[in-house]
Amino acid sequence: MIEIKNLVKTYNADTIPVKALDHVDLKIEEGEFTAVVGPSGCGKTTFLNILGGLDTPTNGTILIDGTDLHNRSSADMITYRRDHIGFVFQDYSLMPVLTAEENVEFIMELQGRPKAERAARSKALLEAVGIGDKGKQFPTKLSGGQQQRVAVARALASKPKLILADEPTANLDSKSTSDLLDIMRQLNEKENITFVIATHDQRVMDRAKRVIQFDDGKIIDTKI
């Protein structure tokens, strides 16, 4: 379970302070499929960055299963992210020099898992996201939807309990968006993986179990 207490993030604290997050309190239960929505600049991405350990809060704490997420060194944070959090980015952010299979395997290699296990899991994950036949393709040879599926497979490679996705459907057409959301929902339901998705996309909101609305760094509404 994720417990967010009094989360504050202020940029330019020494000059003209901008509050990106303003005393945010929130609980996210294991296995939730949550959409974080709101206008541009409302704090969605900052919230996701801090929740993913990419950025540090000015104030407040995030407890994941009772442990303070930010109470670790930056090196420990990198390995924590590697082992416990999956990321999906708007522009896919795959390694262009690695094939789809290799992109998925890469995270497992960073974890030091054996080659055979990596190969088998990579294949299985690509099958699960519906592009088992594209494993040997480089990202540039894949469509946007296919690349985002590889990104989801990569995010799942380390067997994380939490996946953070920042506008994952922003560059996709309707069909690809629908397929991707199907895959994410299936993973959420079958494997009880928690998804937190920052989005503007109504289709994502429609499929989310909970929608949290941000404005001016504050949660102004929560719909279940």
């Binding site: 990419l54 090196a75 990198i78 390995t79 992210r81 590697r82 990321f87 980015f89 960073l110 990569r154």
Partner: peptide
């Protein structure tokens, strides 16, 4: 730079 940012985000330690 962005690629290195992504790599550290997904868990690649800087030494690598």
């Amino acid at each position: 730079e962005r690629e290195f940012g992504i790599l550290t985000a997904v868990g690649m330690i800087r030494r690598k």
